[in-house]
């Protein structure tokens, strides 16, 4: 049984103002195995974030079935940790309180909360900053808090929606490396949405290339290049060329169609 099974997912947004419907996701079928690091790659507006939101339970598919660990997804829940595009932390809580928020909701005592949260603060390298508020931390540090918060729930899958898009190039590289290290250490299933071919190839062992409007799966490419991956190596460039040609074929097809 796959960790995530998407069966014939269709999502139609009704544009009430213009009185027409917009087909966003068209018959998505995808199996994601446990401990996979899957990157959903596609241009903006291809519905990749919508697909992630459907798995998270934030949005409902118009039709089709979404199963996580064999169970139908109906609403958001702590079995699926989400890392948002913006850190989306509670601004009135310190870093450690944000990380431990899930435990607070469950009524765990403060001492135990802090004890367990500290492990994840350490994991994302924020020791010494645990009592800072989000307004006192940089964008990259806040995103680390967001990742720690998702990991602490020990979810079966972690869903990430372009979490590094707002970071500067250097911080982004560091965060990518650390995310891979965390994934290798903790062995979790990650679904990572991105529009960057490089990012998808640095992170994923399975890259799902999506097409634009309506969103379909063009191809799911397995990519088992050993890590750490050298982004200047021939092997990396070969893979990149293959992905880019998939995307290019798609744009020519679209150009001819219109």
């Amino acid at each position: 049984m796959a960790a995530i099974e998407l069966r014939n997912i269709v999502k139609v947004f009704s544009d009430k103002r213009r009185g027409r419907d917009l087909l966003t996701l068209d018959n998505i079928n995808l199996d994601i195995e446990a401990n996979d690091f899957v990157c959903l790659l596609g241009p903006s507006g291809c519905g990749k974030s919508t697909l992630l939101n459907i798995i998270a339970g934030f949005e409902q598919a118009t039709s089709g079935r979404t199963l996580v660990d064999g169970k139908q997804v109906e609403r958001p829940g702590s079995d699926r940790g989400v890392v948002f595009q913006q850190p989306t932390l509670m601004p009135w809580l310190t870093a450690i309180d944000n990380v431990a928020f899930h435990l607070k909701l469950k009524g765990v005592t403060k001492a135990e909360r802090y004890d367990r949260a500290m492990e994840f603060i350490d994991l994302v390298g924020l020791r010494g900053f645990e009592h800072h508020h989000p307004s006192e931390l940089s964008g990259g540090m806040n995103q680390r808090v967001g990742i720690a918060r998702a990991l602490l729930m020990n979810p079966s899958v972690i869903l990430m929606d372009e979490p590094f898009a707002a970071l500067d190039a250097q911080t982004k590289l560091e965060m990518q490396e650390e995310l891979v290290a965390i994934w290798q250490k903790r062995r979790c299933t990650i679904v990572f949405v991105t529009h960057s071919v490089d990012e998808a190839l640095v992170l994923g062992n399975k890259i799902v290339v999506m097409t634009k409007r309506p969103g379909r799966i063009r191809e799911a490419v397995n990519f088992d290049m050993p890590r750490p991956r050298d982004i200047t190596s021939p092997e990396f460039n070969d893979a990149k060329r293959r992905i880019l040609s998939l995307i290019r074929e798609e744009s020519t097809r679209l150009a001819q169609a219109s």
């Binding site: 998270a56 339970g57 934030f58 609403r75 958001p76 829940g77 702590s78 699926r80 940790g81 989400v82 948002f84 913006q86 989306t88 932390l89 509670m90 928020f101 899930h102 909701l105 469950k106 918060r149 729930m153």
Partner: peptide, 11 residues
């Protein structure tokens, strides 16, 4: 999104 984050953490 804060409300979504809360729902994600099981509030």
């Amino acid at each position: 999104n804060l409300v979504r984050a809360g729902a994600m953490m099981g509030a």
